[in-house]
């Protein structure tokens, strides 16, 4: 771990896709630092590279070039299996489409990341119960995903992200599939998690969601267009 408080430090990160003869610069020279307990929103128009950004931050994808220090360790050039381990230990991912395992109930879904850590069943279970209690789903632990509402599913997904006590929580349009009331509930949960000391990075194109965040980074054509650490400024900029 580095001696500064930056959890994430990206230096000149690019991600290129070759589409036939055309080169798509999904990320085009990104430099950004994210501090511990930051609460950050990536906004920007469709195709601006937000998801690509988050996938790289979440070690799901590898950049074409550049350096990515996660907790002071360069993870840009790691092998898939090493990335799996990083994802398991350091990252909590929350997806727009929840991405729960369809045949596993809520409890098993939340326990699943701990399986890859070789944690025994009893410990897994109690840790998962704790996480599910934290997101207010104590009563629903034996429900299958298709027996839960969208908001509840996303809570399970959040519990699954929390259960490993990751250094960052990443959410790609976490409320994109939810109604406005549920969206608010989820965002309030995020606010609480931030208050509890978690580092959160959220991709969104909804103004109300960005407003919850302490820092808003706007992306455009694979570049960082603006970066404001205060809520107010970001609000003005967005208009």
């Amino acid at each position: 771990m580095g001696n500064n408080t930056a959890v994430i430090n990206l230096k000149n990160i690019t991600k290129h896709y070759e589409m036939g003869s055309q080169l798509v610069r999904a990320l085009d020279g990104i430099n950004i630092e994210v501090e511990r307990n930051d609460y950050l929103a990536f906004i920007g128009s469709s195709g601006s590279g937000k998801s690509t950004m988050l996938n790289i931050l979440g070690c799901l994808d590898r950049p074409t070039s550049g350096q990515y220090d996660l907790n002071g360790k360069n993870v840009a050039k790691l092998y898939q299996n090493e990335l799996s381990e990083i994802r398991n230990l350091e990252i909590g991912f929350i997806f727009q489409s929840f991405n729960l395992l369809p045949r596993a109930n809520a409890l098993n879904n939340v326990m699943q990341p701990l399986v890859y850590r070789n944690i025994g069943f009893r410990n897994r279970r109690s840790m998962a119960m704790e996480a599910l209690t934290r997101v207010g789903l104590k009563e629903r632990v034996d429900h299958l995903p298709n027996q839960l509402s969208g908001g509840q599913r996303q809570r399970v997904a959040i519990a699954r992200a929390l259960v490993t006590q990751p250094s960052i929580l990443l959410a790609d349009e976490p409320t994109g599939n939810l109604d406005s009331k549920t969206t608010l509930e989820i965002m309030e949960l995020f606010d609480e998690l931030h208050d509890e000391g978690h580092t959160l990075i959220v991709v969104t194109h909804e103004e109300e969601i960005a407003q919850h965040c302490r820092r808003v980074v706007e992306m455009k054509d694979g570049k960082i267009f603006s970066d404001n650490s205060s809520k107010k400024k970001a609000h003005e900029k967005a208009h």
Partner: peptide
């Protein structure tokens, strides 16, 4: 994909 995203190795 989900399993890999939450830490499953090959």
């Amino acid at each position: 994909g989900i399993c890999k995203a939450i830490g499953a190795k090959s």
